[in-house]
Nucleic acid binder design. Structure first.
Lengths: 227, 227
DNA sequence: CCAATAAATGAATGACGTTCATTTATCTCC
DNA sequence: GGAGATAAATGAACGTCATTCATTTATTGG
């Protein structure tokens, strides 16, 4: 795609003469409608037809503003990224800031796991909200005394954990029910039972907290300055 | 689904009289064909029609052995689980065993990321290979001196990290290219550049190693016995 | 040989994402 | 105040899927 890379927010540069028909649709409206649809009907309910209907428009009209359903997903993702709370990196100690950020990040994407496969592989180019988050997080790491070369890998590791944990948060309570194979997995079955008197209680939150603590401790040891 | 839960491997119990037509198809054959199709054409190429064609059969025939495409994915997932190397838990020190297991696990699912959303939420009931892995890993944790209650959360945390890292391993090298927004993200851009003279080298492997070390150290501290 | 069983077939269905020729509305320029 | 250019919206179509179902085919026990 060797295009002149139009400025963001403008699909194509204004040309010579006449103006078009009044736009009922734009990317922001599409994004908002998609988010509402997702929250009401889930990702299965997010179809181009349903999205168009919720906007009072024919499905084909969407394609004047968006090149594909995948682009809709990218727009939604960017919007969600802007809701991740990374404010702690400018006010709190590093450990606290990471914790706050990680909980917020996981909380948001736990309800949007279908996006994770998109995000994890999506270049940040032209994703301003995502970049803003990375900038703030990077600053926080620098301020905490991390050597520059360790910062990106540390963030990548934390993000991997957060994404995986977001999936986890959606697991059913009985995910570890070994059923009729319990006899052949005695240690595992016993370990699951030790978690509580209730059968089948899945420790998603406890696990997230434990792993996050471990990562914070382990990565924190990479700092060369105390503050 | 209040059924008598038929024994696995048998779709329905043998009944009274005559035997059916000679079966050209079975679940193992379908699983093998699906895996080959995936390795050749990727997950986009895995359609019920393509799967049937590769087996020399009409698409509808598949539904005599499998209730849906989702079940095909579950069969593939179970097969992949059997290839994860957890042997270290009976021979190596805990840290080494975890490392070996995690690398193997990530390596396999990095090429099967579309399955991760399925696995992470799929009950282990009637998933013998998955259960066998959990049993071996649990035993390794017990042998290493973990209190029983800490084991499942620790495994869940490690798995979350492994799944997230599997997505990461597929990120393009230029995922962190901040493009024309580089000026507004100076610290982040500089941190990315510090990773090497080459533009856009993504530190997926380095990040995995760093985060895994952190998790091993942090979780390892939960052991109450030295061995 | 008959009846029962289950596998395989092929046609059909209903979503879905996407395309395209056409129409509609709006603005600039003369 | 037309004329023409521009882009948005429409509605009909397409191709691809997963899935269903009535029917046929093959096999075997009695």
């Amino acid at each position: 795609m060797p295009e002149p890379t139009p400025a963001p927010g403008e699909t194509k540069a204004r040309r010579r003469a006449g103006r078009p028909m009044a736009a009922v649709l734009d990317q922001d409206g599409i994004t908002a409608a998609a988010l509402e649809l997702i929250s009401k009907k889930g990702y299965d309910g997010l179809t181009m037809a349903a999205l168009a209907r919720s906007l009072g428009v024919a499905p084909s009209a969407l394609y004047n503003h968006v090149s594909s359903k995948d682009e809709v997903l990218k727009l939604v993702e960017e919007d969600l990224m802007s809701k991740v709370d990374f404010g702690g990196f400018s006010t709190l100690p590093w450990e606290e800031a990471v914790r706050q950020w990680a909980y917020s990040y996981r909380g948001i994407f736990a309800r949007h796991t279908p996006l994770i496969s998109v995000i994890a592989v999506l270049p940040v180019t032209d994703a301003p909200q995502t970049l803003a988050m990375y900038e703030a997080v990077t600053e926080g790491f620098l301020r905490a005394g991390f050597p520059e070369k360790q910062i990106i890998p540390s963030i990548v590791a934390l993000e991997a954990y957060i994404f995986g944990a977001a999936f986890d948060a959606n697991a059913p309570a009985d995910i570890f029910d070994s059923g009729r194979l319990a006899d052949s997995t005695p240690h595992f079955t016993s370990a699951v039972r030790s978690l509580g008197p209730e059968r089948n209680n899945y420790p998603s939150d406890l696990a997230f907290s434990m792993g996050l603590d471990a990562l914070i401790t382990g990565l924190g040891a990479l700092r060369t300055q105390p503050n």
